[in-house]
Simulated scan of single mutants.
Amino acid sequence: MKSIHFIGITLLLILLSGCATSVTEDIQIEATADTTSQFSDYKSYTWLGDIAALNDPEGIWQPPKINLAENIKFLIDRELRKRGIFNYAENAQLQVVFFMGVDMEAMELKVNPDNQQDILETVPAASLAVALIDAKTGYVIWVGEAMGDIQQNSTEERIRKRLDYAVTEIFKKLPKD
């Protein structure tokens, strides 16, 4: 379980360490909410866990030197606090879980600059998904996701900026009622 956690954190770090002109321009954010839920009624949560997946058959990916899961949890805690939702283990109204994944063999259509034709290229990608679950019913009421490119040899500062951006933008999609 510890190795899965480490792999997940490492994967997320790579996701958020893409090399774009802007630190965050390649990160895409999406979210889906249960339209019947009253999000303003939720005031407490507890952590359910985190899950990671890695698709790197060639063993190319190099894990970062920072604890991604710890950083992500900190950022999620911060965003939930901003919404007036606090971490209480007993009688929590929400359960929070996040999923990280890295796919070093992800494919994308790119335009060949020589002939302007589309070609399929390998573009390593990563994603972070955060889910909020109603503790009473067990139903997922909201999922937010950040997807981005992976860049090798990114700095810790750049990775932290990308994580901060991703989590902040994900939670901007959480309904306020």
Results as ranks from 00 to 15, higher is better:
residue 1 M to Q: 13
residue 2 K to Q: 14
residue 8 G to L: 07
residue 9 I to G: 13
residue 15 L to Q: 09
residue 16 L to M: 15
residue 21 T to D: 13
residue 24 T to M: 01
residue 24 T to A: 11
residue 29 I to A: 03
residue 30 E to P: 00
residue 30 E to C: 02
residue 31 A to R: 06
residue 35 T to N: 14
residue 36 T to Y: 04
residue 37 S to Q: 07
residue 37 S to M: 08
residue 38 Q to P: 00
residue 39 F to K: 04
residue 40 S to Y: 04
residue 43 K to C: 01
residue 43 K to Q: 11
residue 45 Y to N: 03
residue 47 W to D: 04
residue 48 L to Y: 10
residue 49 G to T: 02
residue 51 I to K: 08
residue 52 A to L: 04
residue 55 N to A: 09
residue 60 I to L: 10
residue 60 I to F: 11
residue 63 P to W: 01
residue 66 I to C: 02
residue 67 N to L: 12
residue 67 N to F: 13
residue 68 L to Y: 03
residue 70 E to L: 13
residue 70 E to D: 12
residue 72 I to R: 03
residue 75 L to S: 07
residue 81 R to Q: 06
residue 84 G to V: 00
residue 85 I to G: 00
residue 85 I to W: 01
residue 86 F to W: 08
residue 86 F to A: 02
residue 89 A to P: 02
residue 91 N to Y: 10
residue 91 N to K: 12
residue 92 A to I: 09
residue 95 Q to N: 11
residue 96 V to C: 05
residue 99 F to V: 13
residue 99 F to P: 01
residue 101 G to F: 06
residue 105 E to M: 12
residue 107 M to V: 13
residue 108 E to Q: 11
residue 109 L to G: 01
residue 110 K to G: 03
residue 111 V to N: 04
residue 114 D to L: 09
residue 115 N to V: 04
residue 115 N to M: 03
residue 116 Q to F: 08
residue 117 Q to M: 12
residue 123 V to D: 00
residue 124 P to Y: 01
residue 127 S to I: 01
residue 131 A to H: 10
residue 139 Y to S: 14
residue 139 Y to A: 14
residue 140 V to N: 05
residue 141 I to N: 04
residue 142 W to D: 11
residue 142 W to I: 12
residue 142 W to F: 13
residue 143 V to N: 06
residue 144 G to A: 10
residue 145 E to W: 01
residue 146 A to S: 12
residue 147 M to E: 06
residue 151 Q to A: 15
residue 152 Q to H: 14
residue 156 E to H: 14
residue 160 R to K: 15
residue 163 L to V: 15
residue 166 A to G: 15
residue 167 V to Q: 03
residue 168 T to G: 05
residue 168 T to I: 07
residue 169 E to C: 05
residue 170 I to G: 02
residue 173 K to S: 14
residue 173 K to F: 06
residue 175 P to L: 01
residue 175 P to T: 06
